[in-house]
Simulated assay, not measured.
Amino acid sequence: MNLFGGTISTLEKSLKYASVKNQTISNNIANVDTPNYKAKDAVFKNVLHNTMSTGVQAKRTHENHMPFDGTSDSSFQIITKQNTSYNSNGNNVDIDKEMAELAKNQIYYQALVDRINGKFGSLQKILQGGS
């Protein structure tokens, strides 16, 4: 029995993505002065695009449901930005961009935590008899 229709699972995956993105950004910031270090990024759009182009295997239960043709075991991936160099030492970490991405990711993470807390709060209220 799925109490929230997959919402908790989706929020869990989103929290995992936000955590990996935060770790990736933190690694970039920590290596801002490391010669030849190439910035990394956790991305979702590329995986979605690749999945949709290769297809996803899924069972359609209604003719109005979207068809899928392929598989993907992860909702995101870590990529290395190879084509840029901002510093003379070969490092391509833009500290201003990384700090902005970190702030944006922290807001995203906090929104997810607030949403999952709301779901658990609803469950707790139901278990206590709705009062």
Rank of each mutant, 00 (worst) to 15 (best):
I78L: 14
P35S: 05
K104Y: 09
N50H: 08
M66I: 15
V113G: 01
V47M: 10
L123I: 15
A103L: 11
V20D: 14
G118T: 13
V56G: 10
V32Y: 03
L112A: 08
K16N: 13
Y37N: 00
D96F: 10
I95M: 07
Q23W: 01
T24E: 03
L48G: 07
L48M: 14
T61R: 11
Q57T: 08
F120K: 05
V43R: 08
T34N: 01
L112R: 09
A18M: 06
R115Q: 10
I116Y: 11
S75H: 05
L48E: 14
M99Y: 09
N91A: 05
M99V: 13
I116S: 04
S85L: 03
N28M: 05
E101A: 13
V113R: 07
E63W: 12
K97I: 14
H62M: 05
N50D: 15
Y108D: 04
Y109T: 06
M52C: 01
S19V: 01
K104W: 01
F76Y: 15
L123A: 13
N117H: 08
N89Q: 02
Y108Q: 09
E101H: 04
M52D: 04
N28G: 02
G90S: 05
N22G: 11
K104S: 13
K119E: 14
N46W: 00
S72F: 05
A39M: 07
A39R: 11
E12A: 10
Q110L: 09
F76M: 10
I29Q: 05
K16G: 02
K13T: 04
I116E: 09
K40R: 14
V32R: 03
G70D: 07
M52Q: 12
Q77D: 14
N28L: 06
T51S: 15
F76V: 02
S85K: 11
A39C: 04
P67H: 09
E101S: 15
I78A: 02
N83P: 00
K38G: 00
H65C: 02
G118K: 08
T71S: 11
S19F: 02
N28C: 03
T71D: 11
V20M: 10
I29H: 03
S74K: 15
V47P: 08
D69G: 01
Q57C: 01
S19H: 06
D96C: 02
N92C: 03
K21T: 10
I25A: 06
V93K: 02
V43C: 09
K21I: 06
Y37R: 00
L102S: 14
K16Q: 12
I79V: 15
D96P: 00
N28Q: 06
K38H: 01
G55S: 07
P35T: 01
M99T: 10
T71H: 12
T34D: 01
N105P: 05
T51I: 05
N64A: 12
T10D: 04
K45V: 10
V32T: 08
D69P: 00
S14W: 07
S9Y: 15
L48K: 09
V43F: 03
N83Y: 09
A103F: 06
F44Q: 15
